[in-house]
């Protein structure tokens, strides 16, 4: 009907109205407004990140200027002007070593079972649901597990240590914490390996294990590597479970001079970098405000270096494969 009106040429007004409706001359305010609001909410996160980093660095400046490297290399001390965080850095590194030794093989093996071997049985479904739930358990609850099982039951009960609050107990606790995440990231890496690769391998008569070892794992390894390091970085910054699994919560402690590294790990008191941050942040003296900021800067720099290193290493791994 409308076309007939235009065709007759009698009403220019109708023609104009129709053209406007088709071309949409209306100024559209809502579109850019919505886009802008959404962009702002994303930029807010960026702003928070910038303010956080700037604030911490600015607050730590006086410490770096007055103390230089000694704040990193000194042992903990009851006197804030002499204290340092080397014990925490040592503790965190050794904890991470324990976590790698325990959770990496376990996590990768469990993921290989779930992705490469498991059929859709009841057991498999229970395993998958269980791992999902483990990944969502609050970290402090793992601390309770560590306190009851590793500190009390295994180290104090079975091994017979006087105090089970040692680095190995903390390391085992953190391993349990990251195990589920390790499984999930490895599963994702394995899932990304094309099915055709496995089928080709079976086609020439390889067994499942030969297929996994020679074809699936080499392809999945860069992704497994990256996922694991990111998971370990999480463990490195984690502190809540260590509060319960026995990390030292005082402004100083010392192992006897010349204690071998094995007994530092197995039987001595320990602390970790995030625990030092927590501990210093609740000290009443004002010197600790800047000291805490310095410890945070150290922690963030370590995490940054590890993450950047991982990305570079992954790229190198992938490049080698292509050649």
């Amino acid at each position: 009907m409308a076309t007939r009106t235009i065709g007759s040429g009698s009403t220019a007004v109708t023609q104009d109205m129709l053209r406007r409706a088709l071309e949409g001359r209306k100024v559209n305010v809502i579109n850019p407004l919505v886009a802008l609001t959404l962009l702002i909410s994303l930029l807010a996160s960026l702003a928070i990140l910038v303010v956080l980093l700037w604030d911490v660095v600015a607050k730590s400046m006086p410490v770096w200027q007055e103390r230089g490297w000694s704040v990193i290399t000194n042992d903990l001390s009851p006197r804030p002007e002499e204290t340092g965080m080397v014990q925490g850095i040592f503790g965190s590194v050794m904890l991470t070593v324990v976590v790698v030794i325990l959770s990496f093989p376990l996590g990768v093996a469990a993921a290989i079972y779930l992705e490469e071997y498991a059929r859709d049985t009841r057991l498999t479904r229970i395993l998958v649901a269980n791992i999902r739930n483990l990944a969502g358990v609050p970290s402090i609850v793992y601390g309770l597990l560590g306190l009851t099982v590793f500190v009390k039951l295994i180290l104090e009960g079975m091994v017979g240590q006087l105090s089970g609050r040692t680095l190995i107990a903390g390391g085992m606790t953190l391993s349990m914490l990251v195990l589920a995440i390790m499984v999930i990231t490895t599963q994702e890496a394995l899932r990304a390996v094309p099915m055709a690769l496995r089928e080709a391998s079976y086609g020439v008569g390889a067994t499942p294990w030969q297929t996994i070892r020679h074809h699936v794992l080499p392809v999945a390894s860069p992704a497994i590597f990256t996922g694991s390091v990111l998971t370990l970085a999480r463990a490195f910054g984690e502190s809540a479970p260590l509060l319960l699994a026995g990390a030292v919560l005082s402004t100083f402690f010392a192992a006897p001079e010349g204690t071998p590294i094995t007994s530092l790990v197995m039987s001595e008191k320990y602390t970790a970098l995030p625990i030092i941050i927590y501990n210093w942040s609740r000290q009443p003296q004002t010197e600790y405000i800047a000291l805490t900021a310095a410890a945070i800067v150290a922690l963030l720099v370590i995490l940054l270096v590890v993450n950047a290193g991982t990305i570079l290493a992954r790229d190198a791994l992938e490049r080698r494969r292509i050649r």
């Binding site: 956080l52 604030d55 910054g237 502190s239 995030p274 942040s281 405000i289």
Partner: peptide, 14 residues
């Protein structure tokens, strides 16, 4: 990737 202790300090001191 920022550890939660860091945000605790940020909340308390900023």
């Amino acid at each position: 990737g920022i550890p939660s202790v860091v945000l605790g300090y940020f909340a308390l001191r900023f």
